[in-house]
Design a protein around this nucleic acid. Structure first.
Lengths: 218, 218
DNA sequence: TTATGACTGAAAGGCGTTTTTAGTCATAGG
DNA sequence: CCTATGACTAAAAACGCCTTTCAGTCATAA
């Protein structure tokens, strides 16, 4: 029987099924047969798209990070003041992770237990990809003379590191508190750092830096 | 047989033995009999000092944090410029943790697997105690007019959070890189934040803030 | 009054058997 | 001829049962 779906659609259907089952049963209890059934395809078909159950799951994680990046870009492309954009991006990043963890609560420990080495191997890549979005905005602020930044990319890394301890990579390490509390802390750190980045002439205003003459990007 | 050691010395001997055995065998493989033998006392004696094997181990962790606090205080009491002290303290804190993890490499996963809930319960306390030392220095900088700080304690929390993702709480989450690399990143973050804390009149100098007229503490 | 180590119940560690499941591949369908 | 499928298989996980280990106790010794 020829499927009515395109190759890409089938792939997405598999990942959607994975998302549902992972959140519901966790990695260990989710079987490849389950995925096939949930996606409404044969088991063998999954192996035409992915090399293994591991690969399916890792691709699913990749997709999540991809969506985070899209959200960050959406903010980065705004015409708000660069400082405000950065602040919003930092908060969005932390809250996105928070919500993800919330969504996969039960399954996260399970997932980490099974795929920790593979996930660690990818973490550096994720981190770098996210940092690039931040670097873009930092670079823009630098060129506009708003930011006192030497190397945009390494400053971006420092920025992400600074808020990283707030985002719960794993329930096992970080028991997550209230969403609002995490948001507040992120904002606090963001302000602390941003006040250092802002050039002196802008500095007086501490927290609520006013919107500056907009510069359109892209 | 009456021991030749004071109560306090016995307690320390037990913790020393724990330190040795934990680093060598890890939590699960370390038996209470081992501890007694290593400390040169009877098994029952351990239960005159601690309620359980767990308690022994947690007290051992407490002692490590206590030592970190002492090291932080040692720097805090220096008469160097407040900004430099803060920078040194941040680096010292991260490297202290790094070295601890290095020392207990094998045992850490084991320890976390067994005592994670209990350790998480204490983490907030540890964090707060360390923050107090930082707040002390921040407060001093504020009074001296060097720092632009509202609430010293909450700024201290933000500072610690900002470098927290660099310190390997658990090998399971964070594969640790090179010591030098971690040191460098910490310094970078510290500088980023400190440049925001420094009052405008001081700001021009970015990285190597010169030593200021010393103010003795304590 | 303090220290000890033999003792005990509960939990961890084998281990052989049964069940589950990831991944394959011969076959069916278009 | 090319894609999708699900029965099949080898490997791993789960289970049940027995043995050993060990945290914590307590009667006795110093």
């Amino acid at each position: 029987m020829v499927s009515t779906l395109t190759r890409e659609e089938t792939r997405e259907a598999i990942l959607d099924a994975t998302d549902y089952l992972l959140a519901r049963y966790g990695y260990r209890k989710m079987t490849v047969d389950d995925i096939a059934q949930e996606a409404g395809i044969g088991k063998g078909t999954i192996y035409l798209h992915f090399a293994s159950k591991e690969e399916v799951t890792l691709s699913h994680v990749d997709r999540i990070v991809e969506r985070l990046k899209e959200r960050l870009w959406a903010i980065a492309r705004t015409n708000a003041d660069v400082a405000i954009r950065l602040r919003l991006m930092l908060v969005a990043r932390v809250l996105f992770r928070f919500d993800s963890v919330q969504h996969y609560t039960q399954s996260l420990n399970d997932l980490l237990a099974a795929l920790r080495p593979k996930l660690l191997a990818r973490r550096a890549r994720y981190f770098e990809e996210e940092a690039r979005v931040f670097a873009e905005v930092l670079g823009e602020g630098k060129r506009a003379g708003a930011f006192n930044v030497k190397d945009a990319l390494s400053t971006a890394f420092a920025l992400l590191h600074a808020t990283n301890s707030l985002l719960p990579y794993s329930l096992s390490t970080t028991e997550l508190g209230e969403r609002d509390e995490i948001k507040e802390k992120t904002e606090q750190i963001a302000d602390l750092i941003l006040s250092g980045l802002l050039r002196q002439r802008d500095a007086p205003a501490t927290t609520t830096t006013a919107t500056r003459p907009p510069r359109r990007r892209r």
